[in-house]
Amino acid sequence: MSVLVDKNTRLVVQGITGSAGGFHARQCMEYGTNVVAGVTPGKGGQKFDGKVPVFDTVDEARRETGCNVSMIFVPAAGAADSILEAAGAGVELVVCITEGIPVMDMMRVKAQMAGKKSRLIGPNCPGIITPGACKIGIMPGYIHKPGNVGVISRSGTLTYEAVWQLTSRGYGQSTCIGIGGDPINGMSHLDAVKLFNEDRETEAMILIGEIGGSAEEEAAEWIKANCKKPVAAFVAGMTAPPGRRMGHAGAIVSGGKGTAAGKIDALKAAGIAVAETPATMADTLIEEMKGGKK
């Protein structure tokens, strides 16, 4: 009942000996994630917390442990290289938490990963979690609950808000994917929607977007033509002044494109229920589910 990650996931943590990497690797392990390896160049041969083997390269970690998903906490200056290292070693899913990566680095990463079988989530994202089975990232585990709603979001804390609303109302999540707020990232809203649409255990989806770019519009168009599951959405940034960058590099509005109003119109035109405020994301979806949409 999930997409991309589950009980069988074998995780390698790149940057495991750093303070953030170590802290969150431990949190993931406590949640039940199977962390099989760590990578920090120059620290090969050490054991993290006395049990997880640390390697110098992802290539070795992959050969020695069969890790199939990577979580990256490497500082921004080296993160693009780390993503390509994981992809080059054949790791199937690369989850990059690091924020502040220069956009040109991501442009080159994206071009080099095109056509390869590795998928990228992020960067500048909270990660991915299949509640009760596998947590990869920095989200607080306890707010989640196993269930059947897929959550896709560009923003971290706004995802927690949606998840908490669902959990408090008794609705669990199949998998929650934070795709990240950067202008150039890996998996898009649409990629995640397609996965959830095919997942038998996912019954409905919440799509959380924000101003900038056209990823929400693309997902809306596809949903209109192909998706039979109830979908609710929220777009942050109605009140953002044009031309200003608000935290996420993704959250920039310029030249009248990528506005919240434009995105909301596109989502509504696709038959998606759009929450009026961030406080009603779960309620909007629950109403759609009860209405027996389509």
């Binding site: 923003s155 808000e161 959380i208 940034g237």
Partner: peptide
């Protein structure tokens, strides 16, 4: 969080 910060401005409005 940037997304929640924007959403908070939105709900105030």
């Amino acid at each position: 969080g940037a997304g929640l910060a924007m959403a908070t401005m939105d709900i105030i409005k």
